[in-house]
Computed example of a mutant assay.
Amino acid sequence: MAVSQNSKLVTVFGGSGFVGRHVVRALVARGWRVRVAVRRPDLAFFLQPIGAVGQIHAVQANLRYPESIERALVGADAVVNSVGILVPSGKQTFEALVAEGAKQIAEAAARAGITNVAHISAIGADAESAAGYGRAKAAGEAGVLAAVPGATILRPSIVFGPEDDFFNRFASMATMSPVIPLIGGGTKFQPVFVGDVAEAVAMALEGKTEPGGVYELGGPEVKTFRECIEVMLEVIDRKRAIVSLPLRIASMQAWLLEKLPKPMLTRDQVRMLARDNVVSEEAKAAGRTLEGLGIEGRTLEAILPTYLTRFRPRGQFNMPRTA
């Protein structure tokens, strides 16, 4: 069945990424026509079965080329920016994508008369952050709000879900190594399910957030880095030693790893791990949280077993031990 041509059109930049694909799913469920703007449209075809015939369409866009951004916004009623990187590579730098790229999207939206804009940032966005990632996120937010004052900024804590690069990475490590290294170990996270983040984005486009509001999205539980790994190990039914690395030693190791084409750890990530990543008291007081939006966040215990089973000793046929 073809989708109604009367439905509104939203352009989702980075719509084939980890968070973006779930945003696309949430918007399609609400009847939006979705234009997925990505560098490689040929790698975004997997999204099409999510919607009805013609409801999802991928186009080429590169945030380093403003003209491609403008083309991706032609005829759009709303915009979502879900582009994000954790490790810079070549021309794909924090400054180019996270800061300047976000600004370019918002300015192009403003020129096109689009005021319905949702920008996915991150808890930890801070102009004074010791990490380049945090500073770039803050610059991106500032650029978005300067161009579109009524935009909604969404700052998730660490995001988990089937395609995440956090729990999948550590679970894979646990299948090969008897030791799981932690940087510090006491850093606090408020893990948030990617589907809940996507719901918040959809609600923002529906006008259920405050114009210009900055929302901090954390799940229902605050856990230390060590506690997150302990939950993961329980889910995959593996016993491993968890060893904390002092920040100084971790930074030295990251310096060496950065020389690899695809480093598993960078010094910038070590700096980010030196700070807690949880919803602030200010956001709670203002109701700018998942709970404030009426979204009941899902826990690690409820979701991790749905996608980490392949890391159990006997895969899906291996049930975790009970105490």
Rank of each mutant, 00 (worst) to 15 (best):
F166G: 08
A146H: 11
G140I: 06
V144F: 09
L182E: 09
A174N: 11
D165S: 15
T175K: 15
P178W: 07
F160M: 13
A139T: 01
A174H: 12
A136Y: 00
K137I: 01
P156A: 09
A171L: 01
I153N: 02
F167M: 03
T152D: 07
S157N: 00
S177W: 04
V144S: 12
A146L: 06
T175N: 09
D165R: 14
F160T: 02
L154T: 07
F160S: 06
K137P: 03
P149W: 12
S157I: 02
S172Y: 08
S157E: 07
A147G: 10
F160E: 02
V144T: 11
T175H: 13
A151W: 07
P178E: 14
P162S: 12
T152R: 00
A174Q: 10
D164S: 13
N168E: 09
G186I: 08
P162K: 14
I158H: 04
G161Y: 06
S172N: 15
M176T: 14
N168D: 05
G150C: 07
G186E: 15
N168F: 11
P162W: 01
S157L: 05
K137Q: 10
A139K: 15
G185K: 10
L182G: 08
E141S: 07
S157F: 00
I183A: 08
V179C: 01
G184S: 08
G150P: 02
G161F: 04
A136S: 10
G150H: 10
T152Q: 04
V159M: 00
F167G: 09
A151M: 02
